[in-house]
């Protein structure tokens, strides 16, 4: 699987992790017997992680690899590019477009709102007692996804929803302004519900990494708040922010339950289409499902590669 390929350079990159430490008890390296023993011990050291990586291989790597192969197979087992070709043409191309649009929008909304809230909570004028509260609520909200979240938004801005009723008095029809069952605007608001708390949790350590001295030094040298963020704060944390927004993008792109619960079998997101092809809501076509899933893997791989590049970039100034 291509995503795993990106791990290798990270493993060989010594500057990313803490300085690698030698074996705890260093003996004198002379003597071939000792060297042999040490070699054996190095080898033994890897044994401890075999169960973990073995497990991941079975439940993450093999299924993905199998899927990539199957995407290029016809119903009788012969190799063909037809599935993949179908997956990237109408009508399925529009599913990818919708999915990408939704993921980008919700990552943008969630990312920006998350950064604003995180900065607000860390503001000096805001009581520090609020931090653990915001942390906890973020934990709650970022895990409030799937079917219950879909119902909650139906009860809020769906037909007969609480806000819908409220806005009707103002002459605004929320069900046409932010429809939950079609288009991406309404759905991206739903996704933002778990995206922005996730962003808060991810970004607070990064913002905390900005030293108070930098802010004070820049103020002391005459910089306004805007200049500080423009020249110092943002350049330092931008790679982290972008990396985290990529994670949000990926998690929105993968999400299935929330959207499916809202739109049922009429949904046009890639995961929904795959689901429909598998459970026969419309037609059963596993080969096409494999091809669409392969498309998702390609996009997720791109996201992960960019993420790890940004992570490396981020560790340059924040450690």
């Amino acid at each position: 699987m291509a995503a795993v390929g990106t791990i290798e350079p990270a493993a060989g990159e010594p500057s990313v992790g803490p300085p690698s430490v030698g074996p705890p008890s260093e003996g004198s390296p002379s003597g071939s017997a000792l060297q042999w023993r040490r070699g054996a011990r190095t080898w033994l050291r890897w044994i401890g992680v075999v169960p973990f990586f073995g497990y991941l291989a079975i439940f993450l790597l093999i299924p993905t690899g199998e899927l990539v192969v199957d995407a290029f197979k016809g119903p009788t087992g012969h190799f063909t590019g037809a599935n993949v070709s179908a997956a990237v043409h109408a009508p399925y191309l529009s599913s990818f477009e919708t999915s990408l649009e939704l993921s980008a929008l919700s990552a943008l909304f969630g990312g920006i709102l998350g950064v604003f809230v995180a900065t607000a909570v860390l503001h000096r004028g805001v009581p520090a007692a609020l931090r653990p509260v915001v942390f906890t609520f973020s934990g709650m909200a970022s895990n409030f996804a799937g079917v219950p979240l879909a119902f909650a938004f139906s009860a809020t801005i769906g037909t007969g929803g609480v806000l819908t009723g409220l806005f009707q008095h103002l002459g605004v029809d929320l069900t046409t302004l932010v429809p939950l069952t079609s288009g991406v605007i309404g759905l991206s608001l739903v996704y933002t519900y778990f995206q922005f708390p996730l962003m808060i949790l991810l970004v607070i350590p990064a913002i905390d990494g900005l030293k108070r001295e930098w802010r004070e030094a820049s103020t002391n040298l005459g910089a306004s708040t805007i200049s500080y963020w423009r020249y110092v704060g943002l350049p330092i944390i931008l790679p982290s922010l972008l990396g985290m927004m990529l994670l949000l993008f990926g998690s929105a792109f993968s999400a299935y339950a929330t959207a499916y619960a809202l739109s049922g079998s009429t949904g046009n997101l890639v995961p929904e289409v795959i689901g429909n092809l598998l459970n026969g809501n419309i037609t059963v076509d596993p080969q096409l499902a494999y091809a669409l899933a392969f498309g998702m893997i390609v996009i997720i791989t791109v996201v992960l590669v960019c993420y790890s590049l940004l992570q490396r970039r981020a560790s340059r100034w924040l450690r």
Binding site: E13, P63, L247, Y256, L278, M296, Y307
Partner: peptide, 21 residues
Amino acid sequence: PVMDFVSVLPFVVPPIVLVVG
């Protein structure tokens, strides 16, 4: 660093893809 990277994978790996595979 490898573990850090592996630990973000499930964030973005679509459950539906995993099931299909």
